[in-house]
């Protein structure tokens, strides 16, 4: 059956109560202790709580450990090319405003091979949730330096320690044109992780979430101290920020009040280096959205298309009254 675009419905159907099982598929094959597991469960919970129709949800990933994510989701998925999750996801969303789109990308995927697309995806600001799984190392190819590896990281490509300072993904994203949502969270605090992704899913634009993620296989020490000592996490708190229950707030030793509408302060906090600032750094719901441009003329019927095409052809048609 051919259905015209304007006939499909973007309102969630009320005749189905989706449960966690509707968003899962197969068994995740990440290493035990990998941060991917908790992120997967959290995304599934957010989908369930938002009651996203699985068939109207698309998870797009690149290549790397994070790239396997869509295979474990009970939704539509697109496990594409290294670094190219953003272009594919943008293409999916451009003419299908009815779809819920997630982008799953890693530090190598987003900040290295796909950096050009990251810059422009932020600028396009299409409504989707972009999750940066940042474990500071190339895991799937077995321990090469990533652009976010701390200076001096010993890896198979830099056995004597890496020589360049790392990219700070949130600082970079906050410097990009038309940025509308930047948050940071960690894989091991499930309450904050959930609240952040939930907030991202509700954002009208591209919500960029950097998830500081542990890699037990290759970067055991990177976030070791921080994970065991919650004092190293700095909670950015605000009534317009990530909504945490009071009990969950107690896990944080340090709290900074931060208004997410203040981009200058956000950039300052992004540079904190004596701990990890987590929370909503910046949000602006008024930015231009490229998906609105993409969808502005959807749904023209065949007859109208044909008529307008004939008018166009008229301009090129020669008269034969010679």
């Amino acid at each position: 059956m051919l259905v015209q675009t304007h006939e499909y419905c973007s309102v969630p159907s009320q005749d189905h109560d989706y449960g966690m099982e509707d968003y899962g598929k197969g068994v995740a094959r990440w290493c035990p202790g990998c941060g991917g597991h908790s992120i997967l469960t959290t995304v599934q919970r957010v989908c369930k709580d938002m009651q996203y129709e699985p068939e109207k949800t698309v998870v797009v990933s690149g290549i790397g450990c994070s790239g396997r994510f869509p295979h474990y989701m009970g939704t539509y998925g697109f496990h594409g090319l290294h670094g190219r999750a953003f272009p594919v996801a943008s293409g999916v969303k451009f003419r299908r405003p009815d779809l819920n789109v997630f982008v799953v990308t890693g530090d190598g995927d987003c900040c290295s091979i796909g950096a050009a697309h990251w810059v422009h995806a932020i600028r396009y600001n299409m409504k989707m949730v972009a999750l940066l799984f940042d474990n500071g190392i190339y895991g799937l190819t077995k321990k090469q330096t990533s652009p976010t590896s701390p200076l001096g990281t010993h890896s198979n490509t830099h056995p004597r320690g890496s020589v360049l300072p790392p990219i700070n993904p949130i600082q970079t994203t906050l410097g990009l044109a038309n940025v509308s949502f930047v948050a940071q969270t960690v894989d091991w605090n499930s309450a904050h992780l959930y609240a952040t992704i939930r907030k991202a899913a509700e954002h009208p634009g591209l919500a960029f979430v950097r998830i500081v993620q542990r890699c037990p296989a290759f970067m055991r020490d990177l976030y070791g101290d921080i994970a065991v000592n919650p004092k190293n996490l700095i909670l950015l708190s605000h009534e317009n920020g990530i909504n945490l229950k009071p009990k969950a707030r107690k896990a944080f030793g340090r709290v900074i009040e931060h208004d997410p509408s203040n981009i200058h302060k956000a950039r300052e906090h992004a540079e904190i280096n004596n701990g990890i600032p987590i929370g909503l750094l910046y949000q602006n719901t008024d930015n231009a959205r490229y998906d609105e441009y993409g969808a502005h003329n959807l749904g023209m019927g065949v007859e109208e298309k044909k008529q307008n095409l004939e008018c166009l052809l008229d301009q090129y048609t020669t008269s034969n009254s010679v």
């Binding site: 594409g80 190219r84 272009p87 594919v88 943008s90 697309h117 003329n297 749904g299 298309k305």
Partner: peptide
């Protein structure tokens, strides 16, 4: 006629977007 042009950031993105 109900269509649209997307000028991508590069050639790779242009095809990736079309594939999406």
């Amino acid at each position: 006629v109900g269509g649209i042009v997307h000028q991508a950031e590069d050639e790779i993105s242009a095809i990736g977007f079309a594939i999406g």
